[in-house]
């Protein structure tokens, strides 16, 4: 079976290239990661991240036949051959399939991804209704693999400014948590033409998420909140319209 893999080692290569490997698939190779491990056994210079091999740690996001996904939960049978593997787009490549995720995590940190509550908690647990807890489903399960954000054209365009689908999904996770009381502060933090409104519902994020989450829906939720709870800053609205007009 032939697999083409993007290779770049800054120590030895002037520029990146694709290397085609011919790998013998056996019965026990079900996931793409199984094949990559086999290739690495013959060429130990191939570099990639991997850990849990079951889709919960988020290490092995890569671009598989043009679409972002996790190698460990991508079935070989479901892939068009020859398989073409590249690092996830939109982030600097450190080496081969390993990208520098600093920018991605900077955006995550910027949304204050932790519960804020001014009230002193009770000695025991805070109560939360099952309905309120349900609001966190589809949000808290994010594994920070970066597949969504690096599939987002708005992020490619403004990677330093647009928070991106993963960061915004987590922002929404805290916005809808009944235990959090910093809604206004959180909305203020995102009331910005670039940080939030760069999202134009392209939906690549939901399409690639290996956990089946929809950042797109969460972002729409944040936008709705911006309008419902507080009026977005005039400047922001003007800027959005300006952008849309100039596009026409």
């Amino acid at each position: 079976m032939k697999i083409s893999i993007y290779r770049f080692n800054p120590d030895t290569d002037k520029k990146p290239y694709n290397k085609v490997y011919d790998v013998k698939r056996t019965e026990s190779d079900t996931m793409l990661l199984d094949l990559l491990i086999k290739i690495k056994a013959t060429d130990d210079s191939l570099s990639m991240r991997m850990s849990c091999r079951e889709g919960v740690c988020g290490s092995d996001a890569m671009n598989i036949n043009g679409k972002n996904g996790l190698a460990c939960v991508t079935k070989i049978d479901e892939l068009k051959k020859p398989i073409v593997i590249r690092p996830v787009p939109g982030l600097p490549v450190i080496r081969d399939l390993v990208v520098d995720m600093k920018q991605f995590f900077k955006h995550y940190d910027s949304i204050d991804p932790y519960l804020k509550s001014k009230k002193k908690p009770p000695i025991k647990e805070r109560l939360q209704s099952q309905e309120d807890r349900k609001k966190l489903d589809g949000l808290y399960e994010c594994i920070l693999c970066g597949a969504c954000t690096t599939a987002c054209p708005s992020f490619w365009w403004k990677p330093d400014k647009f928070v991106g689908p993963a960061g915004l999904l987590q922002a929404y996770r805290f916005l809808v948590d009944s235990r959090d009381d910093a809604r206004e502060e959180r909305l203020d933090n995102l009331d910005d033409p670039d940080r939030l409104y760069r999202c134009h519902n392209i939906m690549n994020c939901a399409d690639v998420c290996p956990k089946g989450l929809s950042p797109s829906k969460a972002i729409a939720g944040i936008k709705k909140m911006q309008i419902a709870t507080k009026k977005p800053k005039f400047k922001t609205i003007k800027k959005i319209f300006h952008v849309q007009e100039s596009k026409k």
């Binding site: 932790y114 025991k124 109560l127 099952q130 966190l136 959090d180």
Partner: peptide, 22 residues
Amino acid sequence: AAAIYELEHMGMPFDRNTDGRI
């Protein structure tokens, strides 16, 4: 018990019973 309550206070999204407890 204190360790669990502390995690809850930090925001861990525990599943809940109908009475709202963990």
